[in-house]
Write a protein that binds this DNA or RNA. Structure first.
Lengths: 226, 226, 226, 226
DNA sequence: TATGAATGAGCATTCATTCAT
DNA sequence: AATGAATGAATGCTCATTCAT
C-alpha cells in the first residue's frame, strides 16, 4: 500500500466527491433553474433561489453563468433535444399502418417529452417567447420545425398509402401538435394550480385525442378506429 | 338653446371634458396594461410603461389602481365578461345539425375571443397562473368551467341525436378546446415573434381543425365532411 | 322690499354663509393642521388629511397656504400667544405673597395653555425643532424668552421680598418651567398612547409640583406649605 | 508561531477582516440611525442617509434590517438595556441619607443617560410615540415603569426614615423625573438649534434642580440643603 | 373661489451582479 | 473554486403641488 494512500486516501475520496460535484454543478444549477423558470417565469425567479435549490451560494451561480439571461438560455439549450435525427430514423423504419405509427408517435411523445421535465421547456418558451425572441427563433428552428416536419412526413405517408384522405398539409400538422402542446401548457399552469380541477390522466387524454384524430384522418370507415 | 342649458346644466358641461377623461382613464389604463402584460408578462411590465402607453403619468396609474397586482386582476376581470349565458341561449336555440353547430361554435369563438384582445387574457393567465393562483382559480371557475360545459352540451347533443358516436365525454371536450387554446398561445408567443414562421390564416386553421374533428366525431360517413 | 331681495334673498343668505365660511377657512385649516401635526408630526401628516378634516378639498388648502411648510409656520404663528404683555401686567398688579403668585401662575398656565390646544404647539415645536430651526428660534424669542422672563420676575420678587432664598436665577426658572413642559409632552405623546398608564389628574399634578417647589424656594419654615 | 496558527486557524483569520466588518455593521447602522432619527425624526430620515453615515450603501442597510421601521425598533431596543436591576441593587446597597441618595441618583442618571446618546432615545420616543404606539407601550413597560418604580422606592425610603415629609407618592415621582426629561428634550430640540440661547451647564442644572427639590421634600430645616 | 384630476420628484425596497476573502 | 457581504441600478408607490375647469 502506497504512502499516499495511507496518508491521503480519505482526502482523495473527498477530492473525488468534490470534483464529481464540481462537474455536476452546472447541471444541478440548470436543473434547479428549469424547475423555477417553469414554475414562476423568468422575471419572477430570483437567482438566489436557483442557487439555493442547487445547494450552492449565489456567487457560485455566476461563476458558471455570466448572467441570469445566459442561465436561461443555457437551460433552454440544455433541454432542447436534438433527437429528431434518431426519431426520424425510427419512423423511417416503422413497419405497420400509418394509424399505428401516429398512435406510436403520440404515445412516445408523451413518454419522452410530455411526461418528463423537458415539457417544462415548451411551457417556458411559449410563456417567455416575447421577452426572448432569439430563444424563440432558436426553438422554432431546432424543435418546432423538425417536429412539424416529422409529423408532416407521417401524415404524408398516410396520404400516400391511401390510408388518410387528402389533407391541407400546412394545417393538418396542427391537429397532431395542438393537443400535445395543450396538454403541456395545462400541466404546467392551470393544472399545477388546481390539480383537483384537472384530474387529467394523460394516457387517456392521448388515447382520446389520437383516436378521434385518426377517425378524422382515415379515408375508409373500416380503417377507422372503433 | 337646449333644454339642458335652460335648466342650468352648464356646470355639467363645464366638467364634461375632464370628467369624460376621468371616466375613460381606467379603461385606457386597462387597455394599455392588457397589451403589455400579454406581451411581456406581469413581472417584466413596468408600471410606468403602462402609464406612458395610456398617455398618463406614473402617479395617475396609482390613482385608479392601488397596486400593480390589483391592476393585473382588474385587467383579467375586465376582460372576462360572463358571456356564457348569452352563448348558452344562442346554442339552446340553434336549429340545425350538431356538426353545423360545432362549426358555428368555433367560428364564433374565433371572432369573439380568438381574434380580439380577449385572447390575450388566456395567454396571460396560462403564463402567469403559478404566480397568481387565486386569479387562476377565478379563471377556472368563471371561464374554463362554463366554456367546457358549453362544449360538452354541444357534444352531448350530437351523441343524443345519433350524429356523433359515443364519446369519452370527459376528454372529448379537449378535442374542441385544445386547438382553440393552441391557436391563442401561438398567436401571442411564437407567432408574435416570428410571423414569417407562422403565416397562420386563422380561418383556414379553424376550418381545418373543425372539419377533421367532425370526421372524428360523426358516426355515419355520409354525415362527415367531404 | 327690494327686487334684489325678492330675487336673491336665498342666494344672499347662501352667499353670507359661504362668505362666513370663506373667511373661516384658514382658521379651520389651521385648526385641523394643529391637531394633526401634534398627533403625527409634520412629516407624517398628509396635506390631504388636513384638508379633509377641515372639510375642504386638497386644492383649497394650497389656495390659502402656499406649501405644507408655510402651513406649519402659520399654525405655529397662529397659536403662539403674544399675551405676555397682558400677563406681565396681571402679575405686576398682583397683591399677595409671591408663593400665592406662583400658585396662581401655574394654575393659570394650566388653564390657559396646558389644558388648551395651545399646548399642542409646545409639543409640536419641541418635536420638530431640528427640522425647523427658524421656527424654533422664533418660538425661543416669542415664547420661551418672555415666559422665562416672567417666571424670573416672579422668583425675583420672592427673593427681593425675603420670601424666597437666594437662587441661582439662571437655573431656578427651570424649576417652574420643567414640570409644565413635562406635563405637556406627556399629555401629547406617551399619555395619548396609553391613557391607562397615565391617569394624570393635571390639577393634582400642578398642585403637587408647585407645593413641593415652594417648599424648596421659601426661606422660612413658617412660609412653607404644610 | 502562534498556537492558533499551528492548529490551522488561518482560515479563521482569512475571514477575519470581513467578518469583523459583518459583525460591526448592525451596530454601525444602529449608531447612525440613532443620530439621524433623533435629529430629524423617523419620517424625515432617509434610509440612504443612514447607510451613508454608516459608511455603507443603501442595499447593505436592508441586508441587516428588513425595513426602516424595523431599523427604528432595533434602534430603540438596542439602547434600552435593562440596567434597572443593576441600579436597583446599587440603590438597595446605598448607605447614607436619602438626600444624598437622590443627589447621587440624579448625577448618575445624567452621566449614564442624559449625557450619553441614550438620551436621544427618550427624545425620539416622546416625539414619535403617536406614530409607533407599540414602541411607546414597550418603552412604557421597559423604561418608564421601572424607572418610576426606582424613584418611588427612593422617595419612600426618605419618607420611611423620617427624612422626607409625607408625599402624594403618585405625583411626587414626577418631581424627580420631570426635570430630567425636560433637560433631555431641551438638549435634543431647542437646545440643539440655538445653543447660544441654551448655555445649559447640565451639572449646574442638575444641582439646582436637586437641591431645590430636596428642600421641598425634607421635613426638617436642618436636613435641608443650605 | 373651490375642486380634484394629474403630475413627477422623492423615497423604500429588491435583486442581479461583483469581488474580497 | 466557492462564498456571501456589499453594491447600486431599477422599480413600485407616495404625496406635495399644480392647474384646467
Amino acid at each position: 500500500m502506497s504512502l499516499s494512500k495511507l496518508m491521503g486516501e480519505r482526502s482523495d475520496e473527498g477530492q473525488a466527491k468534490r470534483e464529481r460535484r464540481k462537474e455536476a454543478r452546472p447541471g444541478e444549477l440548470l436543473d434547479a433553474a428549469l424547475d423555477l423558470f417553469v414554475e414562476k417565469g423568468f422575471a419572477a425567479t430570483r437567482a438566489e433561489e436557483v442557487a439555493a435549490r442547487a445547494g450552492v451560494s449565489k456567487g457560485t451561480l455566476f461563476l458558471y453563468f455570466p448572467s441570469k439571461e445566459e442561465l436561461f438560455k443555457a437551460v433552454v439549450r440544455e433541454n432542447i433535444s436534438g433527437r429528431f435525427a434518431e426519431w426520424n430514423a425510427e419512423f423511417e423504419a416503422f413497419e405497420g399502418t400509418t394509424a399505428d405509427m401516429l398512435r406510436y408517435c403520440m404515445r412516445v411523445w408523451w413518454e419522452r417529452i410530455g411526461a418528463t421535465r423537458a415539457s417544462g421547456i415548451t411551457k417556458l418558451i411559449i410563456s417567455e417567447a416575447r421577452n426572448f425572441p432569439d430563444i424563440a427563433a432558436f426553438y422554432q428552428q431546432e424543435v418546432i420545425r423538425p417536429g412539424t416536419e416529422l409529423v408532416r412526413r407521417i401524415l404524408q405517408r398516410g396520404v400516400d398509402s391511401g390510408e388518410f384522405r387528402a389533407l391541407d398539409m400546412e394545417y393538418a400538422t396542427f391537429s397532431v401538435t395542438a393537443p400535445m402542446i395543450f396538454l403541456i401548457m395545462m400541466k404546467h399552469s392551470l393544472g399545477a394550480c388546481a390539480p383537483q380541477d384537472y384530474p387529467l390522466d394523460p394516457e387517456r387524454y392521448v388515447t382520446s385525442q389520437v383516436e378521434t384524430l385518426l377517425r378524422g384522418l382515415c379515408v375508409r370507415p373500416e380503417d377507422q378506429p372503433a
